[in-house]
């Protein structure tokens, strides 16, 4: 018997499954990325390598549409992520450093509500609500809806980070003559920073990613990148869509890489298995 079969952590076939999993995850993206460089009008035949569809995205017939959609997507993601991160940071401090209070479980349930309600239900409810109060659908309605459902995504990493920061740091700061405000500014906030950055990036990506809610609340005459792509794909996949998709893929990968390094770089606060002492 080979040694591997005696290793309790190794099961035959698990590695193959992992490889299969990776292939399934990456094959579609890789194929789309490869075909985005296809110098052919047809998406089926390979006609040689070229950047023509990227040029088409930026300067072609639909360039204006895509540029407007990209501007809407990015500006909404920026604003929604900023607002939801600020709201979530405040909430996490209240929840983690606010002691025990009766409304705490209810508050937590409320924060995670956007995660529990199916996206399409949120979309329908928001659409009906804005229509019921007679609010004209457009940029503002998209932004508000995005802020709301980005809150839990920003909240979770920030809260996790804050929970990991031992209270002794703030006590030490106060012991060293810092006022509450100074202890927050010079000690707690810098220690929370990696969580805040991670929460911001996550919220940004989630907002950029959203299709369903945006599609419901956007109203006529305004598109974001996902709704624009969806509209185009409905007419059939064209090569410029492949190029646009690849660009979005690159943006996403850029973001994950940043957040990966941010979360690794963050100094580990405390983390002692503090023995019971009094």
């Amino acid at each position: 018997m080979a040694l591997a079969s005696r290793n309790i952590r190794k099961y035959p076939g698990f590695f193959s499954m992992t490889l299969l999993c990776m292939v399934l995850l990456y094959a579609p993206l890789a194929v789309v990325a490869a075909y985005s460089f296809n110098d052919s009008l047809s998406i089926t035949r390979w006609g040689g390598f070229s950047f023509r569809w990227y040029l088409d995205v930026f300067f072609g017939l639909e360039a204006d549409k895509f540029r407007d959609a990209a501007w809407n997507s990015l500006s909404i993601a920026f604003l929604a992520a900023t607002a939801s991160t600020i709201i979530a940071t405040a909430a996490s401090i209240g929840m983690v450093r606010g002691g025990e209070f009766r409304a705490k479980p209810a508050s937590f349930a409320l924060i995670s509500l956007p995660l529990m309600v199916p996206e399409i239900v949120t979309a329908v409810a928001t659409l009906i609500f804005f229509s019921a109060i007679g609010f004209v659908r457009g940029y503002a309605t998209i932004l508000v809806a995005h802020i709301v459902f980005c809150i839990p995504f920003a909240y979770l990493p920030i809260e996790a980070r804050l929970r990991g920061i031992e209270g002794t740091f703030e006590e030490a700061a106060q012991d060293l003559y810092a006022s509450r405000g100074q202890a927050f500014r010079f000690v707690l906030l810098p220690l929370m920073a990696p969580g805040i950055v991670a929460g911001y990036l996550l919220a940004f990506i989630i907002s950029l990613d959203d299709f369903i809610i945006t599609n419901f609340v956007k109203g006529a005459g305004i598109e974001t990148l996902p709704t624009a792509i969806f509209g185009a794909v409905k007419q059939g996949i064209k090569p410029n869509i492949l190029a646009l998709s690849t660009l979005m893929l690159l943006i996403s990968i850029g973001f994950v890489t940043i957040s990966y390094f941010v979360s690794r770089k963050g100094v580990k606060p405390g983390g002692h298995g503090a023995p019971e002492t009094t």
């Binding site: 909430a91 929840m95 031992e166």
Partner: peptide
């Protein structure tokens, strides 16, 4: 009496405003 104990409710007075 544990270290860091008082910090866990340091923001209790303003928690309503935060949440």
């Amino acid at each position: 009496g544990k270290s860091g104990e008082s910090a866990s409710s340091a923001f209790a007075p303003i928690r309503a405003w935060l949440i």
